[in-house]
Design a protein around this nucleic acid. Structure first.
Length: 600
RNA sequence: GGGGGUGUAGCUCAAUUGGUUAGAGCACCGGACUGUCGAUCCGGAGGUUGCGGGUUCGAUCCCCGUCGCCCUCGCCA
């Protein structure tokens, strides 16, 4: 970073090199550390660019400044003037880029003082996250956090440059918008001017970007905050940032091609890594069958093996009565103790399984666990799965949904627990041809797999009128997700641009004409007035930055994140508001009833 | 809403089966020191063991409740 010259500084604290020796300069920054040798005082001064060692010697700066330098403490803010000097031989510090020089101070101005900080701004010090979040303004001074903020800016800058060059316009869409009860829970905002009415914060600008296509904007992008009132997770936050993109007159291959070029550019610019294009396209059905998951991690094998037919030949109730039986081979899993495999079964129950059947592969067949039931097909089983001596076979027998969930999760757990060596650092792919509809057993109706505006595949359009469950569930859609290392980093679809198709999809979702008009009337109006074929996608910027920085916690890539209970520990949000504000918003608070205490 | 983990000095952690005055490193305060750079040396101060209750002669430790934080299931078109 080049400093912009001001009354406080001519250079930054990471800038000076041997070529600057002899210059009279000014630096400003925070006192990072001090080493007081009595007659000679060393101060490391820090700004976001780096560290520079200052030397206070009474012979050069006079007694007053020398005495003042001995009073400096951590995180005070100072501006100094002095001379850049080469460090003597053996006194260089190879750990920092400015380590070949130091600044012999002549004058100093203390700009701010600080109490002893609750933790040191130091890469060595481990601090609890609670404390970091409480003092986020100090935490963000730490080099790792500054590096993440810098990466995050580089990501958005690269995106804007890339898409801008291709003719995309960045267009803002409203935050105060209409609640659409589909999907996640909305954050709501009371309307003062319309008592009893509410805005909702957008879960994404989905409908607005489609309207922009109808409006003839052709190519739209926006880096935009989205809001979903659901429980946070390690990779989920109530407010998060998306790159939102939409284009007119395109089909699936056009948008995925442009977007994977963008991804390759990001990896090149930020990591210097070449991503080989085009990325693999994998059908949703294949992903589910082989990996039990619609965002497979392709950095390792351990694929799911379908043994339903083989299993049904056995006289083993658990297998015989299950609609689907699959297994995975855990390499080297034969060393697991009974206790460990029992623990795995217990863990599997957390995903809806009744348990987890296992057996160990030996030189002659299978042993332990459910080996005695498998005996008649042991040879065929080992051949089908490719298992070797010393491996562990894990079986799930249940509905396809449960089988895939359990084995998909088990696959990931074994990758982590067994520390399996990944076959590549970044495994990208597109997952395509998602089913259009998902039957919700509880609600007794279909839900859109992606969202209700996703275009069905051309060859499936005729099936939209069907009432036959198998037919409807066989409809595939022009939706696509981009996945990296098992994390969904983006997703989108070609949208429906014909009003008749949109109405048919709404009808399959169980929306009456009246409900359609009430909830999405403005979209149907827009589609009636000449909508171009269009489609787009959204990237999760937070998750992108997580992968690019190798960070596993979303809070570490957000400047001011919230805790798992939705609190901002620094500013104290959310908080109560006073009666006047409530009255103006026409809100009366009704606290939830207190749960009855259990008798002691 | 459910399951699991966790909370002790400013920070990170320890404390035997429930038993003396709850310790250590770093940070902090005072002093010494002209080549340190995670400085060193000498000395010092620092505790509502998250909070409330219970059992006990005695609780950081056991029990009940409660709060914060983390992971997770549900949820996240």
């Amino acid at each position: 970073m080049e400093a912009i010259e001001t009354r406080y500084r001519t250079h930054t604290c990471g800038q000076l090199r041997k070529s600057d020796v002899g210059k009279e300069i000014k630096l400003a920054g925070w006192v990072h550390s001090y080493r007081d040798h009595g007659g000679l005082v060393f101060i490391d001064i820090r700004d976001r660019d780096g560290l520079t060692q200052l030397v206070f010697d009474a012979d050069l700066c006079g007694h007053a400044v020398h005495e003042e330098s001995r009073k400096l403490r951590s995180e005070w803010v100072v501006s100094i003037s002095g001379t850049v000097t080469a460090r003597g031989e053996g006194f260089e510090n190879p750990k920092i880029p400015t380590g070949q020089v130091e600044v012999r101070v002549k004058t100093m101005e203390v700009l701010s003082i600080s109490p002893t900080p609750p933790f040191m701004i130091d890469e060595y010090e481990k601090v609890s996250e609670e404390r970091r979040l409480q003092y986020r303004f100090l935490d963000l001074r730490r080099p790792q956090m500054q590096e993440t903020l810098r990466t995050r800016y580089k990501v958005t800058k690269t995106i804007r440059d890339f898409l801008g060059d291709l003719g995309f316009w960045e267009i803002e869409t409203p935050f105060l918008t209409r609640s659409t009860p589909e999907g996640a829970r909305d954050f709501i905002v009371p309307s003062r001017l319309a008592p009893g009415n509410f805005y909702a914060l957008p879960q994404s600008p989905q409908l607005f970007k489609q309207l922009l296509m109808v409006a003839g904007c052709d190519k739209y992008m926006q880096i935009v905050r989205c809001f979903r009132d659901e429980d946070p997770r390690a990779d989920r936050q109530a407010e998060f940032t998306q790159l939102d993109v939409e284009m007119s007159f395109i089909d699936v291959e056009n948008i995925t091609s442009i977007m994977e070029q963008l991804v390759a550019k990001l990896w090149k610019e930020i990591l210097g890594v070449e991503v080989k294009l085009p990325l693999m396209r994998m059908d949703y059905d294949l992903a589910m069958n082989k990996y039990g998951c619609d965002r497979p991690d392709l950095r390792f094998g351990m694929e799911l093996c379908d043994i339903t037919e083989l299993a049904h030949t056995l006289d083993f109730g658990v297998f015989k009565n299950a609609p689907m039986v699959k297994c995975i081979v855990v390499p080297g899993g034969g060393k697991f103790s009974r206790k460990e495999t029992d623990a795995l079964a217990e863990w599997a129950k957390g995903f809806g399984a009744k348990g987890l059947a296992v057996t160990k592969v030996t030189a002659t067949g299978v042993d332990t666990g459910i080996a005695k039931f498998l005996a008649p097909v042991a040879a065929k089983l080992i051949e089908a799965t490719g298992a070797k001596e010393g491996d562990l076979l894990c079986f799930a027998a249940d509905s396809p949904k449960v089988v895939h969930k359990v084995l998909g999760e088990l696959r990931l757990k074994m990758f982590r627990d067994m520390k399996i060596e990944p076959n590549q650092k970044y495994a990208f792919l597109w997952v395509v041809n998602f089913p259009a509809f998902d039957y919700d057993e509880e609600e007794g109706r279909y839900a859109a797999t992606h969202h209700p505006f996703t275009a069905p595949n051309d060859e499936d359009l005729a099936k939209l009128d069907s009432k036959d469950r198998a037919t409807v569930e066989s409809i595939k859609s022009k939706a696509y997700d981009i996945v990296c290392n098992g994390s969904e980093i983006g997703g989108g679809s070609i949208r429906i641009h014909r009003i008749d198709t949109q109405q048919k999809v709404f009808a399959q979702l169980g929306l009456s004409e009246e409900q359609q008009k009430h909830k999405f009337g403005f979209l149907l109006d827009a589609l009636a007035y000449g909508a171009p074929p269009h489609g787009g996608l959204a990237f999760g910027i937070d998750r992108l930055v997580m992968i690019l920085r190798g960070i596993s916690n979303i809070r570490d890539v957000i400047a001011f994140p919230k805790t798992q209970s939705g609190a901002d520990l620094m500013c104290g949000a959310p908080n109560t508001i006073d009666d006047k504000q409530l009255r103006e918003a026409n809100i009366r608070v009704a606290m939830p009833p207190v749960a009855e205490k259990k008798p002691a």
